[in-house]
Write a protein that binds this DNA or RNA. Structure first.
Lengths: 198, 198
DNA sequence: CACTGTATTGTACAAATGGTCAACAATGGT
DNA sequence: ACCATTGTTGACCATTTGTACAATACAGTG
């Protein structure tokens, strides 16, 4: 006996939210169609009706996750600092704060990252997202190098951008398994290390 | 009809190697008792006979992996540098080179890291390993701070050690999904950033 | 109201998986 | 030579999982 109807868009969104709930709780590897259906209080056949294959649900959940996670963008507050060094510091602070406010999103994203090691589609999807991330830092790093060419001998804008990404990732990743991880002390040390370039 | 016999130790080692083969190829989530047994050319009942539960096999594989991956240790060549800054640089270089020479180990370790997010036992196991890792850097960083107290204002030995771990992890993690990742440029930028302390 | 397309459900099924068990063979001690 | 221990196997079972399908209810249109 079929239940109430819903428009295509609403139902898909409802199922995706349920999928996020399940995946972030039990891991992307433990996501099952039936589990998602139960979470969404819907028959498991309906999930397949809307997503055809489990694979597609997993891919669409990644897209949903990337959108739902407020992706890095240089906020006005960050952009308002005149000195590139201050912008870098503000951006790092903003991102670390954001990540620690969305632990479930970060964990799930991390799951996808591990998956991406073996699945081409997921890898390229994550790769392009990371590229965008890196580019935001690259711009600031390039300015930093122009302002003080001798500050970081041997460094390049691309290299420094990758290092900045490591700071963010490393912080999130270490905090995930170490409950005593001190993000503030971490950020302060990063700032102290790069601070004398201004 | 039972096959040839083998001593307990040999058989376990053989199965663990097969488990590593399967897990590093298909991911720890796709590891099945039957898959491991097939890889080891042995009946799946035998795998259970030696490890009782799949969970135990997974745990012992982690131990095996940590042992097999030549864990960070300050080699004589690294320790021979008189200046702490040079030791740091040599250690970073050594670790990045090591990680890129064992890509399968790194990928699998990363899988376990993601697993550790949801499984207490694995998390603490990885956590203590990471702790050891961090301590090796902490020693060098502490010396660095003593030698040049004003070099990194606001930084602490613990914080800097965590940052160093991020460098290593970030490099490995980015290289895993970005085939164009340039580890040399990355290392050069790290060196340039910390280089002026010496 | 009849008709049509779509949303929804329960059932069914084959494959895979973790785990148990009885039988059986190799080994070593007595 | 007998026996207990231990390694090894194939058969078996219950459960889960992805997917297919037929039946049914609902909404909109003519």
């Amino acid at each position: 006996m079929p239940g109430k109807r819903a428009s295509e868009g609403e139902r898909r969104e409802q199922i995706l939210r349920a999928a996020f709930e399940v995946a972030s709780r039990d891991g992307i590897g433990s996501l099952t169609i039936r589990g998602v259906a139960a979470e969404a209080q819907v028959s498991h056949a309906l999930v397949i009706f809307h997503f055809q294959r489990k694979e597609r649900l997993v891919h669409e959940l990644l897209d949903w996750l990337i959108e739902a996670t407020s992706v890095l963008h240089v906020s006005e507050e960050v952009a308002s600092h005149p000195r590139a060094l201050d912008r870098l510091h503000a951006l790092l602070q903003q991102e670390i704060a954001r990540l620690s406010h969305q632990p479930r999103h970060v964990r799930l994203f991390f799951d996808y990252w591990a998956l991406g090691t073996r699945h081409e589609v997921i890898r390229t999807r994550i790769g392009s997202e990371m590229e965008r991330y890196r580019m935001a830092f690259r711009a600031i790093m390039a300015e930093l190098l122009v302002a003080e060419p001798a500050a970081f001998p041997g460094a390049t804008a691309n290299g420094l951008a990758a290092v900045a990404v490591s700071w963010i990732q490393g912080c999130a990743v270490q905090a995930m398994i170490d409950p005593n991880f001190d993000a503030d002390e971490y950020l302060a040390s990063v700032a102290g290390m790069v601070g004398r370039a201004g």
